[in-house]
Design a protein around this nucleic acid. Structure first.
Lengths: 236, 236
DNA sequence: CATAAATTTAAGGTTACCGTAAGGTTCGCT
DNA sequence: AGCGAACCTTACGGTAACCTTAAATTTATG
Protein backbone atom coordinates (compact mmCIF):
# COMPACT_ATOMS: atom_id res chain seq x y z
CA UNK A 1 0.00 0.00 0.00
CA UNK A 2 2.87 2.34 0.75
CA UNK A 3 4.61 1.60 -2.52
CA UNK A 4 3.37 3.66 -5.39
CA UNK A 5 4.91 1.30 -7.92
CA UNK A 6 2.17 -1.22 -7.42
CA UNK A 7 -0.61 1.22 -8.20
CA UNK A 8 -2.80 0.32 -11.13
CA UNK A 9 -2.43 2.70 -14.06
CA UNK A 10 -4.80 3.01 -16.98
CA UNK A 11 -3.54 4.46 -20.26
CA UNK A 12 -6.17 5.68 -22.71
CA UNK A 13 -5.17 6.68 -26.25
CA UNK A 14 -6.49 5.74 -29.63
CA UNK A 15 -3.03 5.46 -31.19
CA UNK A 16 -1.53 2.07 -30.36
CA UNK A 17 2.07 3.37 -30.67
CA UNK A 18 1.52 6.00 -28.07
CA UNK A 19 -0.08 3.49 -25.70
CA UNK A 20 2.82 1.12 -26.14
CA UNK A 21 5.36 3.85 -25.72
CA UNK A 22 3.93 5.10 -22.45
CA UNK A 23 3.49 1.58 -21.17
CA UNK A 24 7.13 0.90 -21.96
CA UNK A 25 8.33 3.89 -19.99
CA UNK A 26 6.19 3.04 -17.04
CA UNK A 27 7.39 -0.55 -16.96
CA UNK A 28 10.98 0.64 -17.09
CA UNK A 29 10.21 2.76 -14.05
CA UNK A 30 8.96 -0.26 -12.19
CA UNK A 31 5.23 0.02 -12.62
CA UNK A 32 3.71 -3.29 -13.57
CA UNK A 33 -0.03 -3.04 -13.22
CA UNK A 34 -0.72 -1.28 -16.46
CA UNK A 35 -4.00 -1.38 -18.34
CA UNK A 36 -4.77 -0.06 -21.80
CA UNK A 37 -7.86 1.34 -23.47
CA UNK A 38 -8.47 2.92 -26.85
CA UNK A 39 -11.82 4.62 -26.37
CA UNK A 40 -14.34 5.88 -23.86
CA UNK A 41 -16.36 2.72 -23.68
CA UNK A 42 -13.39 0.53 -22.83
CA UNK A 43 -12.18 3.12 -20.37
CA UNK A 44 -15.38 3.17 -18.38
CA UNK A 45 -15.53 -0.60 -18.35
CA UNK A 46 -12.00 -0.89 -17.03
CA UNK A 47 -12.50 1.84 -14.47
CA UNK A 48 -15.48 -0.05 -13.13
CA UNK A 49 -13.94 -3.49 -13.08
CA UNK A 50 -10.25 -2.93 -12.39
CA UNK A 51 -10.55 0.33 -10.46
CA UNK A 52 -7.15 1.74 -11.38
CA UNK A 53 -5.56 4.27 -9.01
CA UNK A 54 -4.86 6.74 -11.80
CA UNK A 55 -5.75 7.23 -15.45
CA UNK A 56 -3.88 8.92 -18.28
CA UNK A 57 -6.43 10.15 -20.82
CA UNK A 58 -5.90 11.48 -24.30
CA UNK A 59 -8.23 14.39 -24.89
CA UNK A 60 -9.22 13.21 -28.35
CA UNK A 61 -10.85 9.84 -28.57
CA UNK A 62 -12.78 8.16 -31.39
CA UNK A 63 -16.05 7.93 -29.46
CA UNK A 64 -16.00 11.18 -27.49
CA UNK A 65 -13.68 13.69 -25.89
CA UNK A 66 -11.77 13.46 -22.67
CA UNK A 67 -13.87 16.04 -20.85
CA UNK A 68 -17.10 14.14 -21.22
CA UNK A 69 -15.26 11.00 -20.26
CA UNK A 70 -13.93 12.74 -17.18
CA UNK A 71 -17.43 13.76 -16.11
CA UNK A 72 -18.61 10.20 -16.58
CA UNK A 73 -15.79 8.91 -14.43
CA UNK A 74 -16.45 11.55 -11.80
CA UNK A 75 -19.95 10.16 -11.40
CA UNK A 76 -18.55 7.23 -9.53
CA UNK A 77 -14.89 7.90 -8.75
CA UNK A 78 -12.57 10.60 -7.49
CA UNK A 79 -9.49 8.91 -8.91
CA UNK A 80 -6.80 11.24 -10.19
CA UNK A 81 -6.86 11.92 -13.92
CA UNK A 82 -3.96 12.97 -16.07
CA UNK A 83 -4.63 14.47 -19.52
CA UNK A 84 -2.63 14.22 -22.71
CA UNK A 85 -3.35 17.01 -25.13
CA UNK A 86 -2.04 18.00 -28.53
CA UNK A 87 -0.52 21.41 -28.99
CA UNK A 88 -3.14 24.08 -29.63
CA UNK A 89 -5.91 21.82 -28.51
CA UNK A 90 -8.46 23.56 -26.38
CA UNK A 91 -6.31 24.18 -23.36
CA UNK A 92 -8.65 26.77 -21.94
CA UNK A 93 -11.35 24.20 -21.94
CA UNK A 94 -9.03 21.77 -20.19
CA UNK A 95 -8.53 24.24 -17.42
CA UNK A 96 -11.88 25.95 -17.38
CA UNK A 97 -14.39 23.20 -17.66
CA UNK A 98 -12.25 20.32 -16.88
CA UNK A 99 -11.26 21.55 -13.47
CA UNK A 100 -11.49 17.98 -12.43
CA UNK A 101 -8.20 17.04 -14.01
CA UNK A 102 -5.22 16.71 -11.73
CA UNK A 103 -2.64 17.66 -14.30
CA UNK A 104 -1.99 17.61 -18.01
CA UNK A 105 0.87 17.50 -20.44
CA UNK A 106 1.16 18.68 -24.06
CA UNK A 107 2.21 16.26 -26.76
CA UNK A 108 4.93 15.79 -27.73
CA UNK A 109 6.44 15.44 -24.30
CA UNK A 110 9.54 14.04 -22.65
CA UNK A 111 8.89 10.68 -20.99
CA UNK A 112 10.80 11.86 -17.96
CA UNK A 113 8.35 14.74 -17.59
CA UNK A 114 5.37 12.45 -17.72
CA UNK A 115 6.85 10.07 -15.17
CA UNK A 116 7.73 12.89 -12.82
CA UNK A 117 4.31 14.43 -12.86
CA UNK A 118 2.59 11.10 -12.61
CA UNK A 119 4.56 9.90 -9.63
CA UNK A 120 4.12 13.30 -8.01
CA UNK A 121 0.36 12.86 -8.14
CA UNK A 122 0.53 9.29 -6.91
CA UNK A 123 2.74 10.26 -4.03
CA UNK A 124 0.57 13.14 -2.99
CA UNK A 125 -2.64 11.25 -3.24
CA UNK A 126 -1.70 7.82 -2.01
CA UNK A 127 1.08 8.18 0.47
CA UNK A 128 -0.23 11.07 2.48
CA UNK A 129 -3.72 9.72 2.81
CA UNK A 130 -2.41 6.62 4.46
CA UNK A 131 0.04 8.34 6.74
CA UNK A 132 -2.17 11.08 7.97
CA UNK A 133 -3.63 9.98 11.26
CA UNK A 134 -4.55 11.41 14.57
CA UNK A 135 -2.85 9.96 17.57
CA UNK A 136 -4.11 6.92 19.44
CA UNK A 137 -2.44 6.52 22.81
CA UNK A 138 -2.78 5.09 26.26
CA UNK A 139 -2.99 6.64 29.66
CA UNK A 140 -3.38 4.96 33.03
CA UNK A 141 -6.40 2.69 32.70
CA UNK A 142 -7.66 3.54 29.21
CA UNK A 143 -6.94 4.15 25.57
CA UNK A 144 -7.62 7.51 23.98
CA UNK A 145 -8.35 7.25 20.29
CA UNK A 146 -8.39 10.70 18.74
CA UNK A 147 -8.72 9.17 15.30
CA UNK A 148 -12.23 7.99 16.05
CA UNK A 149 -12.73 10.32 19.00
CA UNK A 150 -13.48 7.72 21.64
CA UNK A 151 -12.09 6.65 24.98
CA UNK A 152 -11.88 2.92 25.61
CA UNK A 153 -11.59 1.47 29.07
CA UNK A 154 -12.78 -1.56 31.00
CA UNK A 155 -16.07 0.18 31.64
CA UNK A 156 -16.73 0.48 27.92
CA UNK A 157 -16.37 3.04 25.18
CA UNK A 158 -17.22 6.70 25.54
CA UNK A 159 -17.36 9.29 22.76
CA UNK A 160 -15.47 12.55 22.90
CA UNK A 161 -17.05 15.86 21.96
CA UNK A 162 -15.39 18.38 19.68
CA UNK A 163 -13.92 20.54 22.42
CA UNK A 164 -12.75 17.57 24.41
CA UNK A 165 -11.07 16.26 21.30
CA UNK A 166 -9.32 19.56 20.62
CA UNK A 167 -8.14 19.81 24.22
CA UNK A 168 -6.81 16.29 24.30
CA UNK A 169 -5.00 16.85 21.03
CA UNK A 170 -3.25 19.93 22.36
CA UNK A 171 -2.44 18.20 25.62
CA UNK A 172 -1.12 15.17 23.76
CA UNK A 173 1.09 17.30 21.55
CA UNK A 174 2.67 18.52 24.78
CA UNK A 175 2.39 15.29 26.71
CA UNK A 176 4.38 15.27 29.90
CA UNK A 177 4.73 19.02 29.70
CA UNK A 178 2.71 21.74 31.28
CA UNK A 179 0.27 23.47 28.97
CA UNK A 180 -0.93 26.82 30.22
CA UNK A 181 -4.64 27.56 30.38
CA UNK A 182 -4.05 30.28 27.84
CA UNK A 183 -2.53 27.86 25.38
CA UNK A 184 -5.40 25.45 25.84
CA UNK A 185 -8.00 28.16 25.34
CA UNK A 186 -6.17 29.35 22.26
CA UNK A 187 -6.19 25.83 20.86
CA UNK A 188 -9.92 25.48 21.32
CA UNK A 189 -11.41 28.94 20.88
CA UNK A 190 -8.76 30.62 18.76
CA UNK A 191 -7.29 34.06 19.21
CA UNK A 192 -9.97 35.68 21.34
CA UNK A 193 -10.28 33.33 24.26
CA UNK A 194 -10.94 35.88 26.95
CA UNK A 195 -13.71 34.73 29.25
CA UNK A 196 -13.50 31.02 28.52
CA UNK A 197 -11.45 30.04 31.55
CA UNK A 198 -14.44 28.62 33.36
CA UNK A 199 -15.57 26.70 30.30
CA UNK A 200 -12.12 25.23 30.09
CA UNK A 201 -12.43 23.93 33.62
CA UNK A 202 -15.76 22.30 32.87
CA UNK A 203 -14.35 20.61 29.80
CA UNK A 204 -11.37 19.38 31.73
CA UNK A 205 -13.76 17.93 34.26
CA UNK A 206 -15.74 16.18 31.50
CA UNK A 207 -12.57 14.69 30.08
CA UNK A 208 -11.57 13.49 33.52
CA UNK A 209 -14.93 11.80 33.96
CA UNK A 210 -14.17 9.84 30.81
CA UNK A 211 -10.52 8.97 31.24
CA UNK A 212 -9.92 8.87 34.99
CA UNK A 213 -10.90 6.18 37.48
CA UNK A 214 -11.64 8.86 40.02
CA UNK A 215 -12.15 12.21 38.27
CA UNK A 216 -11.55 14.10 41.50
CA UNK A 217 -8.19 12.43 42.03
CA UNK A 218 -6.75 12.56 38.53
CA UNK A 219 -3.72 10.49 37.63
CA UNK A 220 -3.38 11.30 33.94
CA UNK A 221 -4.72 14.79 33.43
CA UNK A 222 -3.10 16.71 36.23
CA UNK A 223 -3.64 20.23 37.45
CA UNK A 224 -0.53 22.26 38.05
CA UNK A 225 -1.89 25.06 40.14
CA UNK A 226 -0.91 28.47 38.87
CA UNK A 227 0.67 27.07 35.71
CA UNK A 228 -1.81 24.95 33.78
CA UNK A 229 -2.51 21.30 33.06
CA UNK A 230 -0.39 18.31 32.16
CA UNK A 231 -1.23 15.04 30.44
CA UNK A 232 0.71 11.96 31.50
CA UNK A 233 0.71 9.15 28.92
CA UNK A 234 1.99 5.60 29.21
CA UNK A 235 5.50 4.91 27.91
CA UNK A 236 5.77 5.03 24.07
CA UNK B 1 0.55 16.86 16.00
CA UNK B 2 2.07 19.12 13.42
CA UNK B 3 0.25 17.34 10.64
CA UNK B 4 -1.04 19.78 8.12
CA UNK B 5 -3.68 17.39 6.87
CA UNK B 6 -5.83 17.78 9.92
CA UNK B 7 -6.21 21.52 9.56
CA UNK B 8 -9.71 22.78 8.96
CA UNK B 9 -10.27 24.32 5.55
CA UNK B 10 -13.15 26.52 4.52
CA UNK B 11 -14.08 26.77 0.85
CA UNK B 12 -16.20 29.75 -0.16
CA UNK B 13 -17.64 29.94 -3.66
CA UNK B 14 -21.13 30.56 -4.94
CA UNK B 15 -20.91 27.89 -7.63
CA UNK B 16 -21.65 24.49 -6.13
CA UNK B 17 -19.60 22.63 -8.79
CA UNK B 18 -16.49 24.58 -7.96
CA UNK B 19 -16.97 23.96 -4.25
CA UNK B 20 -17.45 20.25 -4.82
CA UNK B 21 -14.51 20.11 -7.15
CA UNK B 22 -12.10 21.74 -4.75
CA UNK B 23 -13.44 19.69 -1.90
CA UNK B 24 -12.88 16.53 -3.91
CA UNK B 25 -9.26 17.37 -4.60
CA UNK B 26 -8.55 18.30 -1.04
CA UNK B 27 -10.06 15.08 0.22
CA UNK B 28 -7.96 13.13 -2.26
CA UNK B 29 -4.93 14.85 -0.83
CA UNK B 30 -5.86 13.66 2.61
CA UNK B 31 -7.54 16.71 4.04
CA UNK B 32 -10.72 15.75 5.78
CA UNK B 33 -11.95 18.69 7.80
CA UNK B 34 -13.51 20.61 4.97
CA UNK B 35 -16.29 23.13 5.33
CA UNK B 36 -18.27 24.86 2.62
CA UNK B 37 -19.96 28.24 2.30
CA UNK B 38 -21.68 29.99 -0.59
CA UNK B 39 -21.77 33.59 0.61
CA UNK B 40 -20.36 36.12 3.04
CA UNK B 41 -22.92 35.53 5.73
CA UNK B 42 -22.32 31.80 5.91
CA UNK B 43 -18.59 32.39 5.78
CA UNK B 44 -18.56 34.65 8.81
CA UNK B 45 -20.77 32.29 10.73
CA UNK B 46 -18.51 29.34 10.02
CA UNK B 47 -15.37 31.31 10.78
CA UNK B 48 -16.79 32.15 14.17
CA UNK B 49 -18.06 28.73 15.08
CA UNK B 50 -15.69 26.30 13.40
CA UNK B 51 -12.57 28.50 13.37
CA UNK B 52 -10.96 26.97 10.28
CA UNK B 53 -7.20 27.27 9.96
CA UNK B 54 -7.42 28.57 6.39
CA UNK B 55 -10.09 29.84 4.01
CA UNK B 56 -10.29 29.78 0.24
CA UNK B 57 -12.44 32.72 -0.86
CA UNK B 58 -13.89 33.44 -4.25
CA UNK B 59 -13.59 37.16 -4.93
CA UNK B 60 -17.12 37.42 -6.32
CA UNK B 61 -19.90 36.46 -4.00
CA UNK B 62 -23.64 37.07 -4.22
CA UNK B 63 -23.82 39.21 -1.09
CA UNK B 64 -20.55 41.11 -1.27
CA UNK B 65 -17.02 40.88 -2.54
CA UNK B 66 -14.10 38.99 -1.09
CA UNK B 67 -12.25 42.11 -0.03
CA UNK B 68 -14.95 43.36 2.29
CA UNK B 69 -15.34 39.85 3.58
CA UNK B 70 -11.64 39.69 4.27
CA UNK B 71 -11.78 42.90 6.30
CA UNK B 72 -14.67 41.52 8.30
CA UNK B 73 -12.73 38.37 9.04
CA UNK B 74 -9.66 40.35 9.99
CA UNK B 75 -11.70 42.02 12.72
CA UNK B 76 -11.48 38.90 14.78
CA UNK B 77 -9.03 36.50 13.18
CA UNK B 78 -5.61 36.42 11.59
CA UNK B 79 -6.20 33.17 9.77
CA UNK B 80 -4.54 32.82 6.35
CA UNK B 81 -6.78 33.60 3.38
CA UNK B 82 -6.44 32.31 -0.15
CA UNK B 83 -8.26 34.08 -2.98
CA UNK B 84 -9.79 32.68 -6.13
CA UNK B 85 -10.19 35.25 -8.85
CA UNK B 86 -11.49 35.11 -12.40
CA UNK B 87 -9.26 36.27 -15.21
CA UNK B 88 -9.39 40.03 -15.60
CA UNK B 89 -11.22 40.47 -12.36
CA UNK B 90 -10.02 43.24 -10.11
CA UNK B 91 -6.50 41.93 -9.90
CA UNK B 92 -5.05 45.37 -9.45
CA UNK B 93 -7.08 45.75 -6.35
CA UNK B 94 -6.06 42.35 -5.08
CA UNK B 95 -2.42 43.20 -5.44
CA UNK B 96 -2.56 46.89 -4.74
CA UNK B 97 -4.36 46.74 -1.47
CA UNK B 98 -1.95 44.29 -0.09
CA UNK B 99 -4.82 43.62 2.26
CA UNK B 100 -3.58 40.60 4.05
CA UNK B 101 -4.41 37.85 1.62
CA UNK B 102 -1.76 35.19 1.75
CA UNK B 103 -1.93 34.16 -1.86
CA UNK B 104 -4.31 34.01 -4.80
CA UNK B 105 -4.84 32.03 -7.93
CA UNK B 106 -6.54 32.93 -11.19
CA UNK B 107 -9.37 30.78 -12.49
CA UNK B 108 -9.14 28.57 -14.39
CA UNK B 109 -6.36 26.78 -12.58
CA UNK B 110 -4.88 23.34 -12.20
CA UNK B 111 -5.77 21.66 -8.95
CA UNK B 112 -2.12 20.75 -8.62
CA UNK B 113 -1.29 24.43 -8.42
CA UNK B 114 -3.92 25.13 -5.83
CA UNK B 115 -2.86 22.23 -3.66
CA UNK B 116 0.78 23.21 -3.83
CA UNK B 117 0.15 26.80 -2.85
CA UNK B 118 -2.29 25.87 -0.16
CA UNK B 119 -0.01 23.39 1.53
CA UNK B 120 2.83 25.89 1.22
CA UNK B 121 0.82 28.40 3.23
CA UNK B 122 -0.25 25.84 5.80
CA UNK B 123 3.32 24.70 6.27
CA UNK B 124 4.60 28.22 6.59
CA UNK B 125 1.96 29.25 9.07
CA UNK B 126 1.40 26.17 11.15
CA UNK B 127 4.66 24.27 11.38
CA UNK B 128 6.13 26.98 13.56
CA UNK B 129 5.87 24.72 16.54
CA UNK B 130 4.91 27.05 19.33
CA UNK B 131 6.10 24.34 21.65
CA UNK B 132 7.21 26.30 24.66
CA UNK B 133 10.82 25.45 25.28
CA UNK B 134 11.59 25.52 28.96
CA UNK B 135 14.85 24.26 30.38
CA UNK B 136 15.40 20.79 31.80
CA UNK B 137 18.68 20.55 33.66
CA UNK B 138 20.61 18.74 36.36
CA UNK B 139 22.03 19.84 39.64
CA UNK B 140 23.90 17.81 42.25
CA UNK B 141 21.74 14.79 42.94
CA UNK B 142 18.62 15.56 40.89
CA UNK B 143 17.06 16.69 37.67
CA UNK B 144 14.97 19.83 37.50
CA UNK B 145 12.37 19.71 34.76
CA UNK B 146 10.75 23.09 34.30
CA UNK B 147 8.73 21.85 31.34
CA UNK B 148 6.69 19.59 33.58
CA UNK B 149 7.49 21.44 36.79
CA UNK B 150 8.90 18.49 38.67
CA UNK B 151 12.12 17.59 40.43
CA UNK B 152 13.34 14.03 39.92
CA UNK B 153 15.80 12.42 42.28
CA UNK B 154 16.50 8.99 43.72
CA UNK B 155 13.86 9.62 46.34
CA UNK B 156 11.19 10.08 43.70
CA UNK B 157 9.45 12.90 41.93
CA UNK B 158 8.28 16.10 43.55
CA UNK B 159 6.10 18.77 41.97
CA UNK B 160 7.06 22.41 41.86
CA UNK B 161 4.61 25.18 42.63
CA UNK B 162 4.14 28.27 40.47
CA UNK B 163 6.42 30.53 42.53
CA UNK B 164 9.07 27.87 42.88
CA UNK B 165 8.93 27.41 39.13
CA UNK B 166 9.34 31.12 38.48
CA UNK B 167 12.25 31.38 40.89
CA UNK B 168 14.08 28.40 39.46
CA UNK B 169 13.63 29.76 35.95
CA UNK B 170 15.17 33.09 36.90
CA UNK B 171 17.97 31.38 38.77
CA UNK B 172 18.63 29.05 35.85
CA UNK B 173 18.79 31.92 33.40
CA UNK B 174 21.61 33.26 35.55
CA UNK B 175 23.10 29.91 36.52
CA UNK B 176 26.50 30.14 38.12
CA UNK B 177 26.02 33.85 38.73
CA UNK B 178 24.67 35.71 41.70
CA UNK B 179 21.06 36.85 41.42
CA UNK B 180 20.07 39.58 43.85
CA UNK B 181 17.02 39.18 46.06
CA UNK B 182 15.55 42.19 44.33
CA UNK B 183 15.87 40.58 40.93
CA UNK B 184 14.28 37.39 42.20
CA UNK B 185 11.39 39.24 43.78
CA UNK B 186 10.90 41.19 40.59
CA UNK B 187 10.77 37.96 38.62
CA UNK B 188 8.06 36.54 40.82
CA UNK B 189 5.97 39.45 42.02
CA UNK B 190 6.60 41.99 39.28
CA UNK B 191 7.17 45.69 39.69
CA UNK B 192 6.30 46.38 43.29
CA UNK B 193 7.94 43.64 45.25
CA UNK B 194 8.52 45.63 48.42
CA UNK B 195 7.80 43.57 51.51
CA UNK B 196 8.23 40.14 49.95
CA UNK B 197 11.79 39.50 51.13
CA UNK B 198 10.67 37.11 53.80
CA UNK B 199 8.38 35.29 51.41
CA UNK B 200 11.30 34.86 49.07
CA UNK B 201 13.27 33.19 51.84
CA UNK B 202 10.46 30.79 52.52
CA UNK B 203 10.23 29.84 48.86
CA UNK B 204 13.96 29.35 48.66
CA UNK B 205 13.70 27.06 51.63
CA UNK B 206 10.94 25.05 49.99
CA UNK B 207 12.92 24.67 46.80
CA UNK B 208 15.87 23.47 48.81
CA UNK B 209 13.74 20.87 50.51
CA UNK B 210 12.97 19.51 47.05
CA UNK B 211 16.33 19.68 45.33
CA UNK B 212 18.91 19.40 48.12
CA UNK B 213 20.03 16.31 50.06
CA UNK B 214 20.33 18.43 53.15
CA UNK B 215 18.29 21.63 52.77
CA UNK B 216 20.19 23.32 55.56
CA UNK B 217 23.55 22.65 53.94
CA UNK B 218 22.75 23.52 50.31
CA UNK B 219 25.12 22.51 47.53
CA UNK B 220 23.18 23.72 44.48
CA UNK B 221 21.14 26.71 45.57
CA UNK B 222 23.64 28.75 47.52
CA UNK B 223 23.20 31.83 49.66
CA UNK B 224 25.61 34.67 49.01
CA UNK B 225 25.31 36.66 52.15
CA UNK B 226 24.51 40.31 51.56
CA UNK B 227 24.03 39.86 47.81
CA UNK B 228 21.54 37.18 46.88
CA UNK B 229 21.45 33.58 45.69
CA UNK B 230 23.27 31.48 43.14
CA UNK B 231 22.28 28.26 41.37
CA UNK B 232 25.00 25.77 40.54
CA UNK B 233 24.11 23.36 37.72
CA UNK B 234 26.01 20.34 36.44
CA UNK B 235 28.14 21.08 33.39
CA UNK B 236 25.75 20.63 30.41
C1' DC C 1 -39.69 22.74 14.03
C1' DA C 2 -38.94 19.74 17.74
C1' DT C 3 -35.68 17.17 20.23
C1' DA C 4 -31.31 15.92 21.85
C1' DA C 5 -26.63 16.91 22.46
C1' DA C 6 -23.01 19.98 23.31
C1' DT C 7 -21.36 24.02 25.29
C1' DT C 8 -21.45 27.99 28.25
C1' DT C 9 -22.77 30.39 32.35
C1' DA C 10 -23.30 30.67 37.05
C1' DA C 11 -22.91 29.82 41.96
C1' DG C 12 -21.29 27.61 45.96
C1' DG C 13 -17.67 24.53 47.78
C1' DT C 14 -12.82 22.91 48.49
C1' DT C 15 -7.95 22.93 48.89
C1' DA C 16 -3.19 23.73 48.05
C1' DC C 17 -0.30 27.41 47.99
C1' DC C 18 1.36 31.56 49.74
C1' DG C 19 2.42 35.16 52.94
C1' DT C 20 3.07 36.39 57.66
C1' DA C 21 5.07 36.21 61.84
C1' DA C 22 7.88 34.63 65.53
C1' DG C 23 11.76 32.41 67.24
C1' DG C 24 16.21 30.33 66.00
C1' DT C 25 20.87 30.18 63.81
C1' DT C 26 24.97 31.69 61.51
C1' DC C 27 28.09 35.12 59.92
C1' DG C 28 31.14 38.95 60.19
C1' DC C 29 32.84 42.71 62.53
C1' DT C 30 34.88 45.09 66.57
C1' DA D 1 34.12 36.76 72.94
C1' DG D 2 30.18 39.66 72.21
C1' DC D 3 26.85 41.81 69.37
C1' DG D 4 23.90 43.00 65.57
C1' DA D 5 22.49 41.99 61.05
C1' DA D 6 21.37 38.77 57.69
C1' DC D 7 19.39 34.70 56.94
C1' DC D 8 17.03 30.22 58.36
C1' DT D 9 13.13 27.44 59.89
C1' DT D 10 8.59 26.17 61.21
C1' DA D 11 3.79 26.52 61.54
C1' DC D 12 -0.65 28.52 60.75
C1' DG D 13 -4.57 31.09 58.73
C1' DG D 14 -6.40 33.44 54.58
C1' DT D 15 -7.47 33.22 50.03
C1' DA D 16 -6.96 32.86 45.13
C1' DA D 17 -7.15 29.19 42.08
C1' DC D 18 -9.48 25.50 41.07
C1' DC D 19 -13.41 22.05 41.52
C1' DT D 20 -18.15 20.55 41.06
C1' DT D 21 -22.85 20.58 39.93
C1' DA D 22 -26.85 22.18 37.78
C1' DA D 23 -29.30 25.15 35.01
C1' DA D 24 -29.38 28.12 30.79
C1' DT D 25 -28.21 28.61 26.19
C1' DT D 26 -26.52 27.43 21.87
C1' DT D 27 -25.83 24.15 18.22
C1' DA D 28 -26.66 19.97 15.71
C1' DT D 29 -30.03 16.51 13.88
C1' DG D 30 -33.87 14.18 12.22
Amino acid sequence: MENIKNKKILIVDDEPEIRKMIEGFLRKEGFFRIYLAANCEETLKICHSIKPQIAILDVMLPDGDGFTLLSSIRQFSQMPIFFLTAKGEDQDRLLGLGLGADDYIVKPFLPRELILRLTAILKRVYTTTVTQQLPVFMVEGCTIDLESAVVRSNRGEQPLTAKEHALLLKLYENRGRIVTSDALCEAVWGGDYYGYENSLMVHIRRIREKIEMNPSKPKSLLTVRGLGYKLMVKKE
